[in-house]
């Protein structure tokens, strides 16, 4: 097999990578020790950060890509995929993470946006991207730019699942509402929600997003994770919810099992017993408008 016959970074390889994560839990970690705990607990991947979202919220100021040294430390610690976050529109941070060999990039509203008009043109990268979305139009715009995975934005760092629920219901509800419609009607709806018409037609035909659809932003307990799975998520991201809980190892294992048995309340009950304190959490209605992360990017 000659090298020129190999093809790298194709759409299928990027979406295929995302597809291997299905039914899994992707956990935020800030050092090698946490990464090892996440891997041991059964995480399918880790998100390498300098701070978890709740601490980014607390710290204030401009939140940027993590120190490459932290990311490399975490990549060296585990054999599962490692993801990293870049600011919305910051394609140089993305180039840097790609050069480090990160397996997937999260173009994330948790960091301070670098571009308020455009997201990164993700189709030009070999590394796959995941992006947040609050509704179907936003999800399809990100897929059109080359995202290989979509996740709900939720409201990161709050430990409050209400926004993730809202966003998952927006996405799945819109897909359900369009079932059985004529293609003309779907194209008209695509204009209203500012989605590429071809992608909306494909989505309605498949009855789901054409890429893997995870949930993120406020998941703090095994019940939260199972809730998002029952609402149609292909898997979950847990940010602050694990390492800001009183017993991270047990919480991590419990959330992995709850996702695996998301439709079996007896198992979820069992894994939820004596888990200690989940992260404290924030009522999203108490946030000032400039503290709401989900409004970043659209």
């Amino acid at each position: 097999m000659k090298l020129e016959e190999l093809r790298f970074g194709t759409e299928l390889l990027k979406r295929g990578f995302a597809s291997m994560q299905k039914g899994g839990v992707i956990m935020d970690v800030v050092n090698a020790k946490q990464a090892a705990i996440a891997e041991e607990a059964g995480a399918v991947a880790v998100m390498a950060l300098e701070r978890v979202p709740a601490d980014i919220r607390k710290a204030g100021g401009v939140a940027r890509m993590a120190d490459p040294a932290v990311i490399v430390e975490i990549m060296d610690a585990v054999s599962i995929p490692v993801m990293g976050k870049v600011r919305i529109g910051h394609f140089v941070e993305a180039q840097v993470l790609e050069s480090l060999g990160v397996d997937m990039i999260d173009e994330s509203e948790v960091l301070t946006p670098a571009d308020e008009e455009f997201h990164i043109d993700k189709s030009g990268f070999n590394v796959p991207f995941v992006c947040g979305a609050r509704d179907l139009g936003e999800a399809l715009r990100r897929i059109h730019e080359g995202a290989a995975m979509v996740r709900t934005k939720g409201e990161a760092g709050t430990g409050n699942v209400v926004e993730a629920v809202r966003h998952m219901r927006n996405i799945m509800g819109e897909i359900r509402a369009l079932q059985g419609k004529k293609s003309q009607e779907i194209v008209a709806r695509a204009r209203e929600i500012e989605a590429p018409a071809e992608l909306l037609l494909e989505t309605v035909k498949m009855g789901r997003l054409p890429v893997v659809n995870f949930s993120a932003g406020g998941i703090a307990t095994p019940c939260d994770a199972a809730l998002m799975m029952q609402m149609g998520a292909d898997g979950v991201f847990v940010g602050s919810g694990i390492f800001l809980s009183s017993e991270p190892e047990r919480m991590a294992r419990a959330i992995v099992e709850a996702v695996n048995h998301f439709d079996d309340p007896t198992v979820i009950a069992d894994v939820s017993k004596g888990l200690g304190q989940p992260m404290k959490g924030i009522d999203v209605h108490t946030l000032r408008e400039d503290e709401v992360l989900q409004y970043r990017g659209r």
Partner: peptide, 9 residues
């Protein structure tokens, strides 16, 4: 290696 080494052939 990592995802960037994933390929089709």
């Amino acid at each position: 290696g990592r995802q960037k080494e994933s390929f089709e052939a």
